[in-house]
Design a binder for these strands. Structure first.
Length: 879
RNA sequence: GGGCGAUUAGCUCAGUUGGUUAGAGUACUUGCUUGACAUGCAAGGGGUCACUGGUUCGAGUCCGGUAUCGCCCACCA
């Protein structure tokens, strides 16, 4: 075996090598023709325009951990990767590119432009998938998909046509969210509401038939040019008699009616609302109820139309300024109040959304939402953590129809044609040649679908639907969806209702939600703040294993986590610790024969094997419950604090052959097996270093990622743990004395250990060398009787034993008294606590027997210590 | 306006059916070139678990309220 391992772990030496071997070896790929139980995750497809950020790194690390865990457990495991065509983002990227050539997309034409986008995608679109490989993602690249590949496009078409025929997709002229910059509609959830400071303008609208005016309040005065009514609450005493009267719209001098509608809140503003059906969603709704005309005063570029009269051609904000000035000058402006309100902005470019009426395509949501909600109610789909169920349900309960058409070129073209002659609307799976009604020529709807429309089909489109593929049958419904909580509405909810509609089954059983990766100050990472951390740089510097482990430790499902370099360094140190422990093991396993006979187990062997089983159990349970942070923590603690700090130290003399050949072989066997299993437990978290170590360990066992997950075997006999605890306490006690009393490191410390029971005596006697090795104590005298307690000695009292370290000349009596005082104080405190519990009748009556017994045992132990300490204190003070 | 989360050691966080003495990492103090590791070893200091009321034999953990911070949702112009 080649053991020339460097004393520092260098991830660069191993990561790429193993990834290539795994991928080339087809280890990530599984056939759907398997008797094994399937376990499948579809990867949330990152945008083709994207490069890996820490959010992706976290999301994919979590998925990879689950996948590697289940794969080792023997599931037929599929992690299906892919990318999203990301309509607006990608199109914008290419528009920028051609702009540098002095072109725009109209000059290029739709067809040519799309060619350019595909070129761009082919050239740059795999950046992120390359980066995912660096992270160690064990997804099946042979099944990699793209939301606009042939299969996904076919699924999109099929879904559209079916929903259309069912009446769940319709076209209508409704008010939508329009982004004047992106020049497209966006859906309700793509509008981000940000609190902003603005004004509430109070404007006088004079009556037509009499003196006076009614005052309306608005935050957007420029829209008044499109007003077609003023509304008041029907019960509002102030305005009751005005209902039905006519007012004159200032500036434009248009006559508009005063109407009554209970939507109006009499307590807000003046209690009278100007109604602009073409530019406000609420007003639009009200116009429907009252059959009011629309006057469009703002166009798609956010520029005032001809209807705006003197303001025609002005930008909407320029118009506002001018109009307010004009109103003031003509005495129509009553006053201006400062007013804070939620301003709708485009999620992509932050431009203020302009609501406008336009013919668009919609998905009728109520019929789809109902079964999706039921699935959560029935538990067919379960959110982890559970609290996100409410977020999901709450959104679906209040859902409105989903606007799916986008005025873009890059995306799935809406499969609807209009007859140029008779106007017939044709929606079909196959592109029609001419009108089925009149034979006239056809024009296809120019719009494309919302990117999320195709993402919504991802769990089944990627498995081959609409074909009834073996993959689909075997892997659908998928096992779990792992994603950030920011995407529950955009994606999770939509996949659920589409999955239920088209597969009659939920797309996944569990939704595992994680939080965001924040910067060290708890802020979101963003380009504008410049506080982003590039995971690829982190991998380059610290290794993928370190990044992965750091991202999952100390984190709980659904909660955000902060990124600290200190934490990264701590994790890097852990990787190095593992590396060196393994290096040590390898140095001592060069002649180890896995098939050799096993001698009798020493106490340390028995102890570490019990602990190993407990850790196997804990880690497996935690992974089952998606408590990845807890799982990682227990491996960390076991590896460092038990395996390295105690076990390896204890077996050194045996490995060096200082005890016996048989003992050496046994230590080798236990070390080998414990280290192997630990590496397996750790593998899902740190795939590279564990593979590297695994391959160096004796025996050719192939790849660790294909090895069998350690199976928990309960060890009934916990006596080794009890015995070890006694020895550890004695050792720690002596170490403490050495430190406090400044015993020079090299100097052996003499110890007298008074054992109070047969068992304790035996445990210590049989393992005396542990104390010698780890506490540097020698000679050690064991006694069963102690008539006279040693003077001029430092003492440590543990349950079952008293340890004395004679320190003639070295001992400072005052230091010793202080030590004793401190010890006594804590024991006294604990003892009082236990006593009061045990004196409490109710406790004795109501608490479970085990708990009472535990307390009694505790009292016994504390009391024994207390007695000895008390007596010793008295004597020390006497002197 | 509603909902959710957080509040535990100087800092960052664990603590998931209520039950040993509330833990870790980091920082800090002291001592160590100990035949894997100074990215290390040993020892140590540091917490009225935000506040408040309740349920319980027993609360960091469950329930009610308050405060501060953060996030999400929302068509009062």
């Amino acid at each position: 075996m080649k053991n020339e391992l460097n004393s520092k772990y260098d991830p660069k030496q191993v990561e790429r090598k193993w990834y290539e071997l795994w991928e080339d070896g087809g280890y990530f790929h599984q056939s759907p023709r398997s008797d094994k139980e399937p376990f499948c995750i579809v990867m949330p497809p990152p945008n083709v325009t994207g490069s890996l950020h820490l959010g992706h790194a976290l999301d994919n690390t979590l998925q990879d951990i689950l996948i590697r865990f289940r794969r080792m457990q023997g599931y037929n495991t599929l992690w299906l990767p892919g990318t999203d065509h990301a309509g607006i983002a990608t199109q914008a990227r290419v528009e920028e590119q051609i702009a540098q050539e002095g072109l725009n997309k109209y000059e290029l034409g739709r067809e040519k432009f799309l060619e350019r986008v595909w070129d761009w995608k082919n050239e740059y679109g795999n950046t992120i998938t390359r980066q995912l490989r660096l992270l160690g993602a064990s997804c099946d690249w042979q099944r990699e998909r793209f939301t606009m590949d042939d299969g996904c496009s076919k699924a999109v078409r099929e879904v559209f046509v079916r929903l259309f025929k069912k009446g769940l997709i319709y076209r209508g002229n409704y008010i939508v969210n329009w982004c004047p910059k992106c020049q497209t509609t966006i859906s309700d959830i793509e509008v981000e509401h940000k609190d902003s400071k603005g004004n509430l303008y109070h404007i006088k609208y004079p009556f037509k038939d009499r003196e006076g005016f009614i005052v309306v309040a608005t935050t957007r005065p420029e829209t008044m040019l499109g007003d077609t009514a003023v509304a008041v609450h029907p019960e509002d005493e102030r305005y009751k008699e005005l209902i039905g009267k006519t007012v004159i719209l200032p500036i434009l001098n248009r006559e508009i009616p005063i109407i009554a509608d209970s939507y109006v809140d009499p307590a807000f503003g003046s209690g009278a609302v100007k109604i602009t059906p073409a530019h406000d969603p609420n007003d639009y709704e009200m116009a429907l109820r009252h059959d009011l005309p629309h006057v469009v005063v703002i166009n798609k570029d956010a520029v005032m139309t001809v209807e705006a009269g003197p303001y025609k051609g002005m930008d909407r904000y320029e118009c506002r300024k001018k109009l307010v000035a004009d109103l003031a000058q003509k005495d129509f402006l009553l006053n201006i109040q400062e007013h804070e309100y939620a301003l709708g902005q485009c999620y992509r470019c932050d431009t203020v959304i302009e609501p406008l009426v336009s013919p668009q395509w919609f998905v009728k949501m109520k019929p789809l939402a109902a079964p999706a909600m039921e699935a959560a109610h029935k538990g067919d789909v379960r959110f982890v953590p559970e609290r996100f169920t409410k977020v999901y349900l709450n959104w679906l309960e209040n859902i409105r129809d989903w606007c799916i058409s986008r005025q873009l070129w890059w995306g799935h073209r809406i499969p609807v044609w209009y007859c140029d002659s008779c106007g017939k609307e044709i929606c079909s799976m196959e592109d029609p040649d001419n009108c089925s009604e009149c034979g006239g020529s056809l024009t296809q709807d120019p719009d494309v679908l919302d990117t999320w429309f195709s993402s919504a089909l991802w769990p089944f489109s990627t498995l081959g639907w609409p074909e009834e593929t073996a993959d689909l049958q075997h892997f659908y419904p998928t096992s779990v969806l792992v994603t950030g909580r920011d995407i529950i509405f955009f994606w999770v909810a939509r996949m659920l209702f589409m999955g239920i509609e088209f597969q009659k089954q939920v797309p996944f059983y569990h939704v595992f939600i994680h939080g965001l990766v924040l910067d060290s100050l708890g802020r979101k990472m963003s380009k504008s703040l410049g506080n982003g951390v590039d995971p690829i740089e982190v991998i380059d510097k610290y290794g993928a294993d370190t990044l992965r482990f750091m991202l999952v430790t100390g984190n709980t499902p659904g909660n955000d986590l902060r990124f600290h370099y200190e934490k990264l360094e701590g994790t890097r140190n852990f990787a190095n610790k593992i590396w060196n422990a393994s290096r040590f093991a390898l140095m001592n396993l060069h002649d180890y024969d896995p098939k050799g006979e096993l001698g009798s187990l020493a106490l340390a062997d028995q102890w570490i094997l019990v602990r190993l089983q407990e850790v196997i159990n804990k880690v497996t349970e935690c992974l089952d419950k998606y408590e990845l942070g807890e799982a990682a923590r227990s491996i960390y603690e076991f590896t460092w604090n038990e395996l390295c700090d105690w076990y390896i130290e204890l077996i050194k003399p045996r490995l060096y052959g200082k005890v016996s050949e048989e003992s050496r072989k046994t230590a080798q066997a236990v070390l080998y097996s414990t280290l192997s299993r630990t590496m397996q437990l750790l593998h899902p978290f740190m795939p590279f270093i564990t593979e590297e170590i695994w391959r160096h360990l004796p025996g050719d066992r192939g790849s660790i990622m294909l090895s069998d997950w350690p199976r928990f075997k309960e060890v009934k006999d916990k006596a080794p743990v009890v015995k070890m605890r006694l020895l550890m306490e004695i050792i720690k006690g002596i170490r403490n004395i050495r430190n406090e009393m400044n015993v020079p490191p090299g100097k052996k410390a003499e110890a007298i250990i008074f054992l109070k029971s047969e068992e304790a005596d035996k445990a210590v006697k049989d393992n005396l060398e542990y104390i010698e090795i780890l506490a540097d104590a020698y000679p050690i005298k064991l006694v069963r009787e102690l008539a006279k307690k040693p003077d001029k000695a430092a003492a440590v009292v543990v349950y079952g034993a008293e340890v004395y370290v004679p320190l003639e000349g070295l001992i400072d009596i005052n230091v010793e008294i202080k030590r004793m005082e401190k010890e006594l104080a804590t024991i006294e405190k604990d003892l009082n606590l236990v006593k009061s519990k045990l004196q409490n009748e109710k406790f004795l009556r109501k608490a479970p027997k085990e708990v009472v017994e535990k307390e009694q045992q505790k009292q016994k132990e504390l009391y024994a210590k207390y007695e000895v300490l008390k007596e010793r204190m008295a004597r020390l003070i006497e002197e």
